[in-house]
Simulated assay, not measured.
Amino acid sequence: MRIAILDDYQNVALDLADWDSLRAEVLVFTDHIADPDELVRRLAGFDVVVAMRERTAFDEAVLARLPDLRLLVTTGARNAAIDVAAAERHGVVVCGTGYLPHPTVELTWALILAARRNLEAETRAMREGGWQTTLGTGLRGGTLGLLGLGRLGSEVARVGQAFGMRTLAWSHNLTTERAAEHGVTAVSWERLLASSDVVSVHLVLGERTRGLVGADALAAMKPTALLVNTSRGPIVDEDALVRALRDGTIGGAALDVYDREPLPADHPLRAEPRALLTPHIGFVTRDVYEVFYRDAVADIAAYRAGEPVRVLRP
């Protein structure tokens, strides 16, 4: 058995799980392989591929050109970059792993605090010999608007409440009763946008949410509002966001996710002073990676034994 581990940017996969127990050839790719032809070329002859989240796409065209592939393991419980139905047609089993939500919640608040207190500018000024160059904005008494109140959104709400913020939420299926269970007020889409000092995205990417936060939504927000996205990039219309930041339509954005990842070096967001950017590190912690890679090893062992676990279905 030959196993390929993709997109291990930090080159840590082999240290975080017992790959030797599989008694197989394991090859780690630390670079991102964006070109489909290059991906097919480099994965030729591998029986198993371990994919990190949604970094590498496996669509019908790619899967059809990997005749040796039998098992595709994705870290996490879902992966929009994998065509599971196509994999099934080509005889490829797709399995997932466990996940820990709290690191993404923690990063969400790291971004909010850093943006509101201008930490990027202040730390840069300190390194350059400066002192107190900006005026921060506090959180207590402000309004936190949550787009989505699931496992992550509800935890973000709880932290906001600890900071003394009023918490509002909206999603397509959110009920008043469900929101009240978390001490949150369910409101309309329009009221959330108009009332929130911080709007934080915690929705699953799908047909109803792709491009949801577009030009109209951004125009409906307070001109001082901060937009935070640690969910999925395409939920926010990136072009509309760049325009809103340049025009001062909103106060700023703090982003960990993007339409295209890695974010191109010449992307306008990289040059936008109102944008605080991190490279999709919400889940990039040792404890999460240990779950990912240990479960990946277990998935491979179970598949080899003829009893695959955590199988994803179309």
Results as ranks from 00 to 15, higher is better:
Val94Ile: 04
Met52Ser: 15
Ala220Pro: 00
Tyr289Phe: 15
Glu38Tyr: 01
Ala81Leu: 05
Glu307Leu: 11
Asp15Gly: 15
Thr209Trp: 01
Tyr303Val: 08
His172Asn: 08
His202Thr: 03
Glu272Asp: 12
Val199Lys: 02
Pro223Cys: 03
Ser231Cys: 12
Ser154Phe: 04
Ala57His: 12
Ser196Thr: 00
Thr137Gln: 13
Val28Met: 06
Arg70Ile: 00
Arg191Ile: 00
Asn79Ile: 07
Arg117Met: 03
Ala57Lys: 15
Glu177Ser: 14
Ala169Thr: 02
Arg116Gln: 14
Gly206Phe: 08
Asp20Val: 11
Met1Asp: 09
Ala34Met: 12
Gly145Trp: 02
Ala219Glu: 10
Glu207Arg: 14
Glu128Leu: 14
Leu27His: 15
Leu16Pro: 07
Cys95Leu: 06
Asp18Ala: 14
Arg210Thr: 15
Tyr303Trp: 15
Val48Phe: 06
Val48Gly: 05
Ala24His: 13
Asp31Trp: 08
Arg310Asp: 11
Ala275Lys: 04
Thr74Arg: 13
Glu261Leu: 06
Arg313Lys: 13
Ala125Ser: 12
Gly76His: 08
Ser154Arg: 13
Asp8Gly: 09
Asp18Trp: 11
Glu272Ala: 15
Gly91Glu: 02
Leu72Tyr: 06
Thr143Val: 13
Ala302Met: 08
Leu113Trp: 02
Leu227Glu: 05
Asn118Met: 06
Asn173Ala: 12
Gly214Trp: 09
Pro262Tyr: 07
Pro234Phe: 07
Arg140Asn: 13
Met221Phe: 00
Thr175Ser: 15
Asp266Ser: 09
Ala24Leu: 09
Val291Cys: 10
Pro223Leu: 12
Leu113Ala: 08
Thr123Pro: 03
Arg178Lys: 11
Arg65Ala: 15
Arg313Trp: 02
Ala215Asn: 02
Glu38Ile: 10
Val311Met: 10
Trp109Asn: 00
Pro273Tyr: 12
Val73Asp: 10
Tyr9Asp: 14
Ala275Leu: 03
Asp299Tyr: 05
Leu107Gly: 00
Glu54Ser: 10
